[in-house]
């Protein structure tokens, strides 16, 4: 990538806020969810109790992480109506919002790994990834198999995602420090390693997002000037290509890859306003010419 995003920023007329709109919204989302959990212990204002594994909002609405609940099922435990309801609500939400919205709009680990990839670009730290992208699905499989073999939530003993968010919410600082370890690993050892290659939580949510309703579309792909900014900023760059470059093959401009996290970074960085949030059935391109052929899914 010869042209850096910096040069493009100066070349464009878009303000800094426009360039960071979705990033800022995501950080606000991540921090406010944390604050909702912390308002209880800090200010005795109990809005949400529990943590991202399972919580109770305003003493009425139960929410449970379907990944942990599934592990518990594999470990041979029966669901209670509370966890079943909670897991169903969460599942339906992610089917609507796109599975990996969990990763980019909720998960606190995302802040650390985003910082790593930002610093990597800043200091031009170049190294390839040590892992294949599909390692996370093997790890997801391992988590379920281990739950079955050991009869317990084996993966949850070391799951960095739950360790970090539980550590932050319950003040277990050594657990929370895992976040820093992931930051360093992603920064110096392997690019985008945790969120992009290894994390089975993200893998699980990506599967939930197979039917994700809200999606990013390269609706204005005719305008693309091949600056590569979106590929450089995207944590899952493989998801963009079919949608962005698929005009000739009549591929829909909607990014349907289950590993798109709906983070909106591509929308932020693109100076040609190629991308926007839309729903998965909106295959229209900017010139309002619907594609004749539906994409095969």
């Amino acid at each position: 990538m010869q042209i850096t995003s910096q040069q493009h920023l100066f070349a464009s007329k878009r303000s800094w806020i426009q360039h960071h709109k979705w990033l800022l919204l995501r950080r606000i989302s991540q921090l406010s969810i944390f604050c909702l959990f912390m308002s209880g212990p800090w200010f005795d204002l109990w809005i949400i109790k529990g943590n991202l594994s399972s919580s109770l909002t305003l003493d009425t609405l139960p929410l449970s992480d379907p990944f942990i609940v599934t592990q518990s099922l594999f470990a041979g435990q029966l669901l209670t109506s509370v966890t079943l309801t909670g897991a169903l609500i969460v599942t339906l939400f992610y089917i609507f919002a796109g599975g990996r919205v969990y990763c980019s709009w909720l998960c606190p680990v995302n802040i650390a790994t985003d910082a790593s990839s930002w610093l990597r670009k800043k200091f031009r730290i170049k190294s390839s990834s040590l892992f294949a992208r599909n390692t996370r699905y093997w790890l997801l499989f391992t988590a379920f198999v281990m739950a079955m073999i050991t009869g317990t939530l084996s993966w949850e003993l070391i799951n960095p995602v739950t360790l970090v968010q539980r550590g932050l919410i319950s003040g277990l600082w050594i657990s929370a420090a895992i976040m820093f370890a992931i930051f360093l690993f992603d920064l110096f050892i392997s690019r985008n390693a945790w969120c992009g290659h290894l994390c089975p939580v993200g893998a699980f949510y990506s599967l939930l997002g197979r039917l994700g309703f809200i999606r990013v579309s390269a609706h204005n792909r005719a305008n693309c000037n091949d600056c590569m900014d979106c590929f450089a900023v995207c944590p899952e760059e493989q998801v963009i290509k079919p949608a962005l470059r698929g005009t000739d093959q009549l591929i829909s401009p909607v990014i349907l890859d289950i590993n798109c996290t709906n983070c909106g970074r591509c929308i932020d960085v693109c100076n040609k306003s190629v991308f926007k949030f839309t729903h998965r059935f909106n295959h229209n391109t900017y010139v309002n010419k619907p594609l004749n052929q539906e994409p095969s899914q």
Binding site: K49, S53, I68, T83, G151, W173
Partner: peptide, 28 residues
């Protein structure tokens, strides 16, 4: 053994305890 399989580590019992007696185990 069953407890470890059923407990989803949400900490709601810790919040439920009015005397702050329960703790969640840190990784160490």
């Amino acid at each position: 053994k069953e407890f470890q399989a059923a407990c989803i580590r949400c900490g709601l019992c810790v919040r439920g305890c009015p005397y702050d007696i329960l703790k969640l185990a840190d990784i160490i």
